[in-house]
Design a binder for these strands. Sequence first.
DNA 1: CCGTATCCTGGTTGATACTG
DNA 2: CAGTATCAACCAGGATACGG
Lengths: 123, 123
Amino acid sequence: MPDFLDNGRVYYNPVDYAMHHIGGTWKTPILWRLSKRIMRYSELKKHLPHISHKMLTSQLRELEELGFVSRTVYPVVPPKVEYALTEKGMRAIPVIDTIRQYGMDLMREAGIDPETVFRKTEP
Amino acid sequence: MPDFLDNGRVYYNPVDYAMHHIGGTWKTPILWRLSKRIMRYSELKKHLPHISHKMLTSQLRELEELGFVSRTVYPVVPPKVEYALTEKGMRAIPVIDTIRQYGMDLMREAGIDPETVFRKTEP
DNA sequence: CCGTATCCTGGTTGATACTG
DNA sequence: CAGTATCAACCAGGATACGG
C-alpha cells in the first residue's frame, strides 16, 4: 500500500510528492531566479517573460505556503514586496540543477546546443 | 532569448525540456518499474494500481517515441507485448532517483516516514 | 491480451478589469 | 507596484465501447 496522504491530497510515490513541490511550469524558474538573489515581484516578472501576472502571484503564494519562499512587504508607497528563498527552498536547488543538467544532455542528444541558446542564469 | 524549439513545441528552459520527457504522473513510475526488469503490458498494469488502460497505453507510446522504451510484439495468441528500457531510458533513472530521494526528504520533514509506507521497488 | 476511438468532465491557465 | 476576482478556453485524463 504505497499511497499516502498529506494535507488532504493523495500521493502515489515520493517522486509524485517531490513534483508537487517543485513541479509545474513555473515553480522551478522562480526558485532558480531566487537562488541567485532576493527579488521584487516586478523583477521576477521581468525575468520570466512568459508568465502571466496571475500565475506569478499564485505560484509565489504556493511556494510561500510550502515554505520554500519568504515574502517581505515594505509598507511604502508604491508598495514594495521582496521574495527570497528559505533554507528549505535552497535545498531544492541541487535537485533542480540535476534535472537541468539532464535536460541539457537531452538537448545535446537532440542536436540543440544549450550553450548557444542560454545564458548561465536561465533554469 | 532563452526559448527554443524541438519537434514543433516551444520550451522555456532545460528543466522544462527534461520534464517533458520524464514528467507527468505516470512516466516516472513506468520507467522505474522497467528499470528493474522487462515487463509485459499486463504486468505493468498490475504494478501501477491507479493508472487507467488509456493512460498506460498513451504513456508507453510517448516513451517509445521519445526513445526511452522499446516495444516487442510476439505474434502469438493471445497477444504478448514486452516493454524494456533503452540505453536512453536507463540514463533517466539516476535523475529519477535523485528526485525520489528528495521527495523522501520532504516526506520526512513533513512527518511522513517513507520506510513505513513504501516497499523498496516503489518510485 | 493488447490497442484505438469517442465522448465527456473538471482542473488549470490566460485575459481582463478593478482595488489599496 | 502589487494583489484579487471573474470568466472563458483549453486540455489532460476517465469511462466506455469496439477491434485485431
